[in-house]
Design a protein around this nucleic acid. Structure first.
Lengths: 133, 133
DNA sequence: CGGCATCCTCGAGGATACTG
DNA sequence: CAGTATCCTCGAGGATGCCG
C-alpha cells in the first residue's frame, strides 16, 4: 500500500537525483523522440543551451545507471552514438505523467509562487492560492 | 505529442525543483497517508531525520505553491495543522508512478551505478549494466 | 509548540580554454 | 568531433542556539 515504507525512500531519492538533474529530462526526451541513436553534437544541438561539460557529465551518469547506451565508433573523425536502453525507456510513463501534470498545473503553481513571494518579515495574511478546473 | 515542446520544459523544471527537494516526497506521503491534518511536530516525527528548519522551509515552499495548506490555531500552546490541498493530491498518480518505478528498478540502478564507479582515468571497457525481469 | 537566526560545508553547474 | 581541465559562484541543506 504505502509506497514509502522501509528502504523505499532511499530508492526514490536515488531516482529523483537522477531525473531531477538539470539536463536529464531534456536529454531523455531528445533521445526518446529520436528514431535512431543520436550523435553527441546532434544531442547537444537538440537539448539546447547545455555546455559540453554538462552534457558529458549527465550522459556518464545516465550511462552508469543503465538508462542510456553509448557506442563509440573508432573512426576518423570520431563518432559516438547515444540511445535510451530498455531500462531507460521504462521511465517513459512516469516522466510523461510528470510532464502532463506540469502541463496542466505548472502555470498555476508558478503563479501561486509568484503571488506568495518573499513574505515581508511577518505573515499576517494567509497566502492565496487557487486551484484551476 | 512531444511533452517537451515550447515553454513546457520550464514547467517541468519547476515541478521537479519542487518534488525533488530533499524532503518533499517524505512530507508528501506522510500527509497523504494521514487521514486528518497533521501537526508540525507530528509531521516531523513521521518524516524522520529532518531538522525543524528544513521542515519549515519545505512546508513554506509547498504552501506557496499551493500543494499544502497550513492552518494556525491561535491557542496556547500553539497548534498548526498541515494537509495536502486538492492540488497537492493531484500529484499522487505521478509520484506513485515514480515510486513504483523506483521500487521495481531502483535496486538495479543502484547496483549499476556501484558497478561503474569512478572510471579510473581512461575507459577501455564498456560499462556493465543489466536489465531485470 | 512551532518555529526563526546564524554559521558553515559541499557539490552542482556555469564560463572558458584546451586536446586526442 | 567529442570530449577534458580549471576556475568560480551560488544556494541547498546540516548544526546549533534562541524565541514568542
Amino acid at each position: 500500500m504505502d509506497p514509502c515504507s522501509e528502504q523505499c525512500p532511499i530508492l526514490i531519492r536515488e531516482t529523483l537525483d537522477l531525473i531531477a538533474a538539470k539536463w536529464t529530462v531534456p536529454i531523455f526526451f531528445a533521445l526518446d523522440a529520436a528514431a535512431a541513436p543520436l550523435r553527441y553534437a546532434d544531442l547537444q544541438r537538440r537539448v539546447g543551451a547545455i555546455t559540453p561539460k554538462e552534457l558529458a557529465k549527465h550522459l556518464r551518469q545516465l550511462e552508469a545507471a543503465g538508462l542510456v547506451s553509448r557506442q563509440v565508433h573508432p573512426t576518423v573523425p570520431p563518432r559516438v552514438d547515444y540511445a535510451l536502453t530498455e531500462l531507460g525507456h521504462s521511465l517513459h510513463p512516469s516522466l510523461e505523467s510528470l510532464a502532463n501534470w506540469a502541463a496542466r498545473f505548472g502555470e498555476t503553481v508558478a503563479s501561486n509562487r509568484k503571488a506568495n513571494e518573499r513574505p515581508p518579515a511577518v505573515r499576517l495574511i494567509k497566502p492565496v492560492y487557487r486551484v484551476p478546473d
